[in-house]
């Protein structure tokens, strides 16, 4: 079994806003994560990432505060899964509820150091 990192990216502004939408979204995420765990393929449920953050760059170390609101694809969270192959991991990622809001999932195999 290999391990894969799923990185969820989306536009923060496209996220659900009404309480009903938010609740339905939470339910979808719970079902999806629960479904992965039910296949015994969840390695670490992971976390959501807060909207505030900085990006540090070379030189003076330009630190920008929360640039993500401007960017269409902010990293919103991550999850670790177990899978035999990249293909299977990709298949699992296809069920991610982030697609309901125009987001995307990056699937990367973890190279253990």
């Amino acid at each position: 079994m290999k391990e894969f990192l799923l990185v969820f990216k989306a536009d923060y502004n496209a996220m659900p806003k009404t309480p009903e939408e938010m609740q339905a979204n939470t339910q979808n995420w719970m079902n999806w994560i629960g479904g992965i765990a039910a296949q015994n393929k969840l390695s670490d449920r992971g976390n959501r990432l807060d909207r505030a953050g900085t990006v540090v760059k070379k030189g003076d170390g330009i630190i920008s505060d929360g640039p993500y609101t401007e960017i269409k694809e902010s990293i919103m969270g991550y999850t670790l899964i177990k899978s035999d192959s990249l293909d299977e991991a990709t298949e699992i990622a296809k069920g991610c509820p982030i697609f309901n809001f125009g987001g995307e999932v990056e699937v990367r195999e973890i190279n253990v150091m």
């Binding site: 339910q27 719970m30 079902n31 994560i33 629960g34 765990a37 039910a38 969840l42 449920r45």
Partner: peptide
């Protein structure tokens, strides 16, 4: 019940 099972399986 489903939500509790979602938690439990994790």
């Amino acid at each position: 019940i489903l939500n509790l099972y979602n938690e439990l399986i994790v």
